[in-house]
Amino acid sequence: MTREHGRVPLVYSEEVADALAEGRPVVALESNVITHGLPYPDNAATARKVEDAVRAGGAIPATICVEGGQIKVGMTDEDVERFASTSGIPKVSSRDLPVVLAQGGLGALTVASSVVAAELAGIPFFSSAGIGGVHRGAEKTMDVSSDLIQFTRSKVAVVCAGAKSILDLNLTMEYLETHCVPVVSYRSDDFPAFYCVSSGIRSPQRLDDEQVIARAVDNHWALGNNSSFLITTPVREEDAIDASEVDAAITGAMAAAERDGVRGNAITKYLMRAVDAATEGRSSRANMSVLVSTAEVGGVWPPPMRGMSGRPPDPSAAPPRSPSAPGRFGVPGKPYPRIPKNQGIAPARVRAVQTSHRVRALSRPGTQRKGRTV
């Protein structure tokens, strides 16, 4: 099914289109992990395992990519195989998305561009192994992942295993706090660090009940926020890598990257490969594990939030209000009540306005005040 959002064409797979039309839960997935993650054929096999994990949780997976000037919402097995075996497919972040769409070629979407596409497609849930963040040394380089920027702009709930260990995780958490992006850890006390169970940083919130998290996400948007909501879940203990081992590898790799002049977009892949070499390939296996485990949790979340998953959006229509969503005074389905003049809270407001006028009047030259001219 093809549908335009403004001038951006969205092409839905039959499975995803049917699920959205019927109000069944759908989880968006990024395609960048296929083209810029593991080597072929492991990348194709892992992509299918991730989609199977979403289905096991009760939701429909929608891996998103760009092809022929269109955003494809839901990749077929043939699409996955082609992207996995084709070299040179560009990594497309949110800033690159308009250009790649205009060029009409292939593009693999990152976390940032995936949440843009998911919101356009009417899919409120997205799952990723790990998000980007503030890079180490950002006080000199200003290197901050576009993932964080996009989280301040897109209304999508993001399930992930925290942020990658190669980042400055303290500054990443500070950034999210500054921009009022909620971070909730599911059945865990700490903010995880990709293939490390814990970053050593206490999570702002721990919630163990899916229904409570579902209500929290709904409340976040009902309160007028237009930003994302992060739900973290750590990698399985048996697949995790010790944080001190990873940190030692990163410290050495950072020094080597500085010496070799590796900067910008190239630094992430450089550091990840260094960690993989230092752990003798265990980090790659952990990478595969965390992709699947986050997808399993991501597939569980949408069912309590079925009212948030619906048909592809009509760009000409006003955003729908869920029947259970609170109105502006917290009453389901009821609009902001009209308050008659001089009733309810009106007198207090009138007094405030009168006081304001009086203050401005007294500030004018020549105004009489208690028998003297000001």
Rank of each mutant, 00 (worst) to 15 (best):
M1N: 06
E14A: 13
L20W: 11
G23E: 11
P25L: 09
L29P: 03
L29V: 13
E30H: 12
N32E: 11
N32T: 15
V33F: 00
G37R: 00
L38W: 02
P41G: 01
T46A: 10
K49S: 14
A53R: 07
T63D: 01
G68S: 09
G69N: 05
I71F: 03
I71G: 02
K72P: 00
M75L: 15
M75Q: 07
T76R: 01
D77N: 10
S85T: 11
S87M: 12
V92S: 00
V92Y: 00
R95V: 13
L101V: 12
G104P: 03
L109N: 07
S113V: 11
V115T: 14
A118M: 05
I123F: 05
F125P: 03
G132K: 03
G137L: 04
M142V: 07
D143I: 04
D143A: 14
D147W: 03
R153Q: 14
S154H: 05
K155A: 15
V156Q: 03
S165A: 15
L167A: 13
D168V: 09
L171H: 11
E177V: 07
E177W: 03
C180D: 14
P182W: 00
P182T: 06
S188W: 04
D189M: 09
A193E: 05
F194E: 10
F194D: 08
Y195S: 08
I201Y: 03
R202P: 05
R202G: 06
R202I: 10
P204M: 08
Q205D: 04
Q205L: 12
E210I: 13
Q211L: 13
Q211A: 12
A214V: 01
A214S: 08
N219T: 13
W221Y: 15
N226I: 02
S227H: 01
L230V: 15
P234I: 13
A248W: 09
T251Y: 01
M254L: 15
R263Y: 09
N265G: 08
I267M: 14
Y270K: 06
Y270M: 03
M272A: 14
A278E: 08
S284M: 13
A286E: 07
M288L: 06
V292G: 07
V297R: 10
G299K: 09
G299F: 03
P302L: 02
R306F: 04
M308R: 14
P313T: 02
P319K: 04
P320E: 02
S322G: 13
G330E: 00
V331R: 05
Y336L: 15
R338Y: 14
I339S: 07
P340A: 11
P340Y: 09
K341S: 10
N342E: 12
V353K: 11
G366Y: 05
